[in-house]
Design a protein around this nucleic acid. Sequence first.
DNA 1: CGTGTTCTTTCCTCTTGGGAAAGTACGTGG
DNA 2: CCACGTACTTTCCCAAGAGGAAAGAACACG
Lengths: 105, 105
Amino acid sequence: MDDGFNEFLHVPARLAIVALLAPTSWTEFGFLRDAIPTSDSALSKHLSSLAAKGYVEVRKDKHAGGRRTLIRLTPDGRQEFRRHAAALERIVATARAPQGGEPDG
Amino acid sequence: MDDGFNEFLHVPARLAIVALLAPTSWTEFGFLRDAIPTSDSALSKHLSSLAAKGYVEVRKDKHAGGRRTLIRLTPDGRQEFRRHAAALERIVATARAPQGGEPDG
DNA sequence: CGTGTTCTTTCCTCTTGGGAAAGTACGTGG
DNA sequence: CCACGTACTTTCCCAAGAGGAAAGAACACG
């Protein structure tokens, strides 16, 4: 498995995060937390690890009555996600196979 | 995630196993072990857990100079794999999105 | 019955995902 | 400027589980 399969991104929670980030630009922390769903702490830790890998970028924004944390994929993160998605695609393709193979005994 | 996403099958090694089994019928233990690749013990344990879930069926076959263990997906296993694959397909689809969303600040 | 082959099980280690709760940072209202 | 609330972040902790090594078991063959 040295195709684009990415064990780090493969973790369900992280897969969910990047899948949510992929089609949009800056996304709110709270939105991700509600959509996943997971605890604040778990999400925060995943985002930290994603940021440490350079897969996401984090920004703090002023908001009416407080701050909000915004997240988006970096180009690198997007590319890694695409590569992993392509690897998954190959796997998914086998599920569509009509079950050929040699017959049993 | 109460679509067909299956955390048990999602584990890379198990995903690899069922993906290899899906397009064929009875498959040899040795073939799987070499293809994955993993140790005998790890593969054996994965196959046991898959069998315990009713996802695969195991058969022992006489062979010139010994026995061979043959494995195949059960209809149930195939269906679960397909459901999981469909869930992955939805995720993979987001990777193809052209990054719309609102622009940054 | 001894031996080799092919798995299987046991033992152990180490990673890690995740929640709870404490901590931090900052904005707001008083 | 301080008290307070909100929005995360970090620490602490635990349990699950993946995986290798090595011992074990089952069976065919000579």
